[in-house]
Design a protein around this nucleic acid. Sequence first.
DNA 1: ACTTGACATCGTAGCAGTTCCTATGTAGTA
DNA 2: TACTACATAGGAACTGCTACGATGTCAAGT
Lengths: 154, 154
Amino acid sequence: MKRAAGAEHEILRSAGLRVTPQRVAILKLLRGTRAHPSPEMVYRELKPAYPGLSLNTVYQTLHALEKAGVLRRISMEENVYRFDANVAPHVHLVCRGCGRVDDCNGDLEPLLEHLGREVAARCAWDIRAQDSCFYGYCPGCRSEGKPPKPREEV
Amino acid sequence: MKRAAGAEHEILRSAGLRVTPQRVAILKLLRGTRAHPSPEMVYRELKPAYPGLSLNTVYQTLHALEKAGVLRRISMEENVYRFDANVAPHVHLVCRGCGRVDDCNGDLEPLLEHLGREVAARCAWDIRAQDSCFYGYCPGCRSEGKPPKPREEV
DNA sequence: ACTTGACATCGTAGCAGTTCCTATGTAGTA
DNA sequence: TACTACATAGGAACTGCTACGATGTCAAGT
């Protein structure tokens, strides 16, 4: 349980956080998926390997990592937190059929940065983060009649 | 309580919804504010004028109006629904200090539509809606030391 | 105007996601 | 190895939202 990869170790240390098996596991999971998991999904995924894991710990770890800037919390149409280890500005695609959240491929960063500059120029706010979400139906749900939302996997 | 303005009346009718005092009041409030109220805020605002109003009714009315395309539900970093009577694509500014949600002035619609086209061209999704949020500190919170979030008014 | 059926409203109860509380455990330093 | 501050676990509490059933009301058709 102690021999985790080094990258997560480094990240935690440089964020001023203690290195614990739980934190390494959570961070590793987030960095290894594109599914933007919710706390619940993280918990369900890691519970088999860490039977003693508490959902509470997942929440606290996610908050700590978010505060340290390692993760981003993103908001979907549903009132459930989701987390993303990709901190750079990018577009999220949210399926109203199955609930999955994808990143949009292709280099949209220049466009998003342009949008950010335009917004900053038009208001007197101190902007710290941006998030662009597109809602619709993924290829899978598109072919069917877009059914109500089941539970997706990490 | 029955002599409300005609615009809301029209909107409700053409959406196929019954016209009731509660619905007119809720829609009128939403259309007359830029604060993107949450259900709770709508309730607190209307309760004095409509003492019998139920929070449940607020929820149901907001859902009905959203389903009819009259309102948009937007997602902030907090897990609270917020509603916007402006259905056209525009940018939201969310203050991490006081929690207020503003629209960004200035004509950003072309840019957003451009972004939408780029996204649609890069993925096989059936896009139905888009939302761009910018997080930071409003002019008021910026001048102070960005305090923790109190409750804002409608 | 009056009746009537379908839809709205209200209050309560229930649920799911998140946070609070606190005793116990453990990482990291000396 | 011993110590101390920080993490964890478990459960209880909180909050925003939804489901349910009884009552009330809008509006179409007499």
